[in-house]
Design a protein around this nucleic acid. Sequence first.
DNA 1: TAGATTGTTAATCGATTAACAATC
DNA 2: TAGATTGTTAATCGATTAACAATC
Lengths: 212, 212
Amino acid sequence: MCAESKDRVYPVPSIRRLPLYLSFLRQLREQKVEVVSSTRIAEELGLTGIQVRKDLAMTGIVGRPKIGHSINELVSHIECFLGWDKSRPAFLVGVGHLGTALLGYKGFKQENLDIVASFDSDPEKIGKTILGRPTYPVSEFSQKAKEMNVQCAILTVPAQFAQATADMMVEAGIVGIWNFAPVQLFVPDSVIVENVSLSSSYAVLSQRLTQI
Amino acid sequence: MCAESKDRVYPVPSIRRLPLYLSFLRQLREQKVEVVSSTRIAEELGLTGIQVRKDLAMTGIVGRPKIGHSINELVSHIECFLGWDKSRPAFLVGVGHLGTALLGYKGFKQENLDIVASFDSDPEKIGKTILGRPTYPVSEFSQKAKEMNVQCAILTVPAQFAQATADMMVEAGIVGIWNFAPVQLFVPDSVIVENVSLSSSYAVLSQRLTQI
DNA sequence: TAGATTGTTAATCGATTAACAATC
DNA sequence: TAGATTGTTAATCGATTAACAATC
């Protein structure tokens, strides 16, 4: 159904722009707009029309010359391409400040990401229900992952425990790790790691500010 | 003192890698190691030696053939290049889940980022001290920014208020915005915006998982 | 039909990688 | 000296941008 090739590696910058389009398109849809051109999308998001067309083409959608694209069709194609059309259950390990923030983040609903349980090694936290999700001891991760058939995990432990936690996740059959620890994780090629690095992001801002 | 050209635009991917080097170098320094080669850094961080040498060259450091680089020198050059050698005061606007997490994040100490106050429009939150920092009403942002000479702001409000908040920040003389809202901000060219997009990051992970 | 828009093919630009001379 | 490492110059690769034909 989804026009996505198993083998092809799609450009990361393009994939990263898709959620931007999606959020703008959903806004338009709420306003009962039914059709939009790539030029319009580009203007609104500070991109170029060509860039938008290339990105959208990646999802397999075809527009109509002179008319533009059907918003419903665009939304469902992008959702499908990203795998956001189906709910994805995920575990979160490390219920600190950041972990708790992610448990409370409402935006994940839009992305169909469902954090079904969290794990920590602090006895103070274990057994408690944080924002609707149970907190289990890390030692039960593997068992629960198999029970609940969870393949995706969010890593929000302190840096020094990150690699060991990742090893444990891989061992438990996790194939996708969303890593928030400021560490380069080493995992088998078959496991997908996506890093969110606050320090890398702040480095760019700070360097530019220093240059002023 | 810092070998940084005002005019030159440094490659973003290179800047984003510098904090990785820094954290590894600090680790080595704690172990009393004094010298390291680019090859060693590369191996440890999953990069290539050439890449590391190019990145380090950017900061103006010179190594010694056959020997490598002095770790102390590397650390201070990178810190200086990123502007992490001086403390930078910042305001945070939007004390929700994510905002609170950032207020509690201890890693910012390493980067010399000092969130000195936070702002919110919720009367429940105003006046309270969250993790050591006072929370003021958003209406006082401009006055406080001038009083405390703050030029950098962290934006953690919900998407629909993001642009208005950014406008307010710019009006108050803020020149650097660290934006966590999933929105493209429009600001004058003189203002630097760095985006942290959770949805863009998750999009990459989810798309790859969908391809398996 | 004319004009706007799509989507493809070619050109440009920038980052990564390769090759290699310089040096301790 | 020989070998390891630095740092520069050239080649490659991939993403962005430009040009333009196709189409409604």
